[in-house]
Design a protein around this nucleic acid. Structure first.
Lengths: 122, 122
DNA sequence: TTATTAACTTGCATATTGCAAGTTAATAAC
DNA sequence: GTTATTAACTTGCAATATGCAAGTTAATAA
């Protein structure tokens, strides 16, 4: 990802779209944040932190900046202070829904035998 | 993922299918391997290593074991020695195609302005 | 029988993640 | 308006994962 998480400056491993998508989103947390925003449409910092997966606050802050710098998420009130200023998906972020839907479908079918408590969410 | 990469033993963060899919595939390399096998249908160790993304050999070995232990990939000749014994996708692995297709479509549309050389592969 | 090389493993440096605690500033309570 | 509370972070450090270079092994080619 990026050391200076203020800036959107991905390192592209290749010109393959799949690899490039993973250059941006291929970690354990970025798509969890997107999932939260598909489920809830608007979400504050502490709401993200209270999701069952238990993201730690430093990683959360870093991923929110990263996704915001890539215009995948945005603050609902860009001019207001950050307290209670929730995030939402941009059009670019909403366009990730089919990716998550396909991943969720795959997981339900193929992980249920090794993951006893898997359920449907989206 | 897992320290002992012989064993399939994912740590599930939650019962959400999306999060669970990411528990298994949410890293920079696993889906690159799956992509190679969608593109080429059969691939040896050194062919994986020569993909443009440049996976290092220790990571490659660890991910191949991981994906094999999860029945996402398999050796073409399970009983033969590993030299030139290529890998292929299982049905479970082939079922990941829609996930990668949707990710590729998203990336082509939404990354082209920040990634000048992005192209279509699958 | 020897040389080559595919398929790994190992060791170590660097980067990323996780955990606990601390800081700041906006709002709520009085 | 002053004080207390708490949301939204930041910081420091330990643990884990990744990356790089080199080494090992055993199957096949010469």
């Amino acid at each position: 990802m990026n050391t200076d998480s203020e800036l959107q400056n991905p390192e592209w491993r290749s010109s393959c779209p799949i690899a490039s998508g993973l250059d941006i989103l291929g970690d354990k947390w970025s798509l969890i944040i997107v999932r939260d925003l598909i489920e809830h449409s608007s979400r504050t910092y502490s709401e993200f932190a209270s999701s069952p997966e238990g993201i730690s606050t430093n990683i959360l802050a870093s991923r929110l900046k990263w996704l915001e710098s890539l215009s995948i998420i945005e603050r609902i009130n860009p001019d207001k202070p950050s307290r209670n200023n929730a995030f939402q998906l941009t059009q670019r972020g909403k366009a990730l829904r089919p990716v998550l839907e396909e991943l969720g479908k795959w997981s339900q079918i193929h992980l249920k035998e090794i993951h006893p408590t898997i359920v449907k969410i989206i």
